[in-house]
């Protein structure tokens, strides 16, 4: 049976995106953004854009998560709204 892997990954992307804007804890949001980027990376790889997937994995899931965590570390962890 052929698995519709792109649809499964796309569902995860949407779940991560909704979770990232609804979670109150900003550290959790940073991690969810990392997960979102990784799912996007898988999606690019499924579509055959390996270069973009590589960039997404290194920049989106790797370094920008670290920047978010660093920014949360120096500001507040709870969001007001």
């Amino acid at each position: 049976m052929h698995w519709p892997i792109d649809l499964i990954v796309l569902t995860f992307v949407i779940f991560c995106a909704i979770a990232a804007i609804s979670v109150k804890d900003l550290l959790g949001t940073a991690i969810l953004f990392g997960a979102y980027s990784f799912m996007m990376c898988l999606l690019w790889a499924v579509m055959g854009a390996v270069d973009v997937a590589f960039t997404e994995a290194s920049v989106g899931a790797g370094v920008s998560t670290v920047f978010f965590v660093a920014a949360v570390f120096r500001t507040s962890r709870r969001t007001k709204d």
């Binding site: 997937a53 960039t55 290194s58 920049v59 790797g62 370094v63 670290v66």
Partner: peptide, 17 residues
């Protein structure tokens, strides 16, 4: 192969981080 300056630079930067 896939890769290039941006990806390599980011990976090198994350090793420093």
């Amino acid at each position: 192969s896939p890769g290039g300056g941006f990806q390599g630079g980011v990976i090198f930067g994350s090793s420093l981080i």
